[in-house]
Nucleic acid binder design. Sequence first.
DNA 1: CTTGACCCCGTACTATGGTACAGGGTGTAT
DNA 2: ATACACCCTGTACCATAGTACGGGGTCAAG
Lengths: 147, 147
Amino acid sequence: MTTELTIGQLAKDVGVNIETIRYYERRSLLDPTSRLPSGYRLYNSEAQRRLRFIKNAQALGFTLHEIEELLGLRVSSKARCRDVQQRAEAKLKHVEAKLRDLQSLARALRSLLQDCRAGQPTDRCPILKAMEDEKHEKGRTVRKEVN
Amino acid sequence: MTTELTIGQLAKDVGVNIETIRYYERRSLLDPTSRLPSGYRLYNSEAQRRLRFIKNAQALGFTLHEIEELLGLRVSSKARCRDVQQRAEAKLKHVEAKLRDLQSLARALRSLLQDCRAGQPTDRCPILKAMEDEKHEKGRTVRKEVN
DNA sequence: CTTGACCCCGTACTATGGTACAGGGTGTAT
DNA sequence: ATACACCCTGTACCATAGTACGGGGTCAAG
């Protein structure tokens, strides 16, 4: 039986801010296992695992909202793997789209810098000029990701 | 001499929300060229260019704060090209770092999905299991194998 | 029994980039 | 002259993911 941790101990253990844990509780992501008569929150190792799950899923690019759903799925794990898989696939697509946007952004910046270094430095700056023109079409470049 | 536009015309022309233009004004990014006695804002082609500049710079990944600085630089363009260049370089580095993060994130998701398809679908989901483990630690998180 | 570290709750604030009213005035066409 | 689209200001609100703070209670050591 693992010792139950206070909020401060849990925070230190997992490496998050105390306030963050309370914030997750407000978001219904992580409830304390129990409370002392004084009201102090106590967390067991299951809660600890859950908090780590949240942090890991976040590191994988999931938002807290998505994590909430994931945690819901996790409860009854039968045949739910497909759901999780689908979400992970969607997330991957999303990440890949963002990757493409950033790559085109990097290319644009690089070519701008090329021009800039080639051109006369005190003259009209090519970067500013480029940004004044409407060259960077809003079509496939850099669109704002929407979940 | 281009006709001056009202806020609604400008919004339609550039393709942004009216409120966004007023928001930029609050942020001191874009002032109307003049006002009618009624208070109606009027914008000339210079303002129009400035708004486009903002949108293009945004599309290049600059925040409104950075754009504010860029616009400041633009005022007296003499010998400022170096400044702009430096900012663009910093931004490029930033973008490249983000690109690396996203790439490792995509790799992690892909490898998780690999495991998932290989494993038996109704069993314990490998993705969920992976997220429960503390493998992905906060350092440079989420990357299983490198490059 | 007091000190200090820890915890409680509730609320407000941060940054980012807007969007949405409410309650009014204006411009113009019919 | 009246409908209707458009504009004004000011304020509040949205999502996201927390962080900070005030004013108090609690726990353990000395």
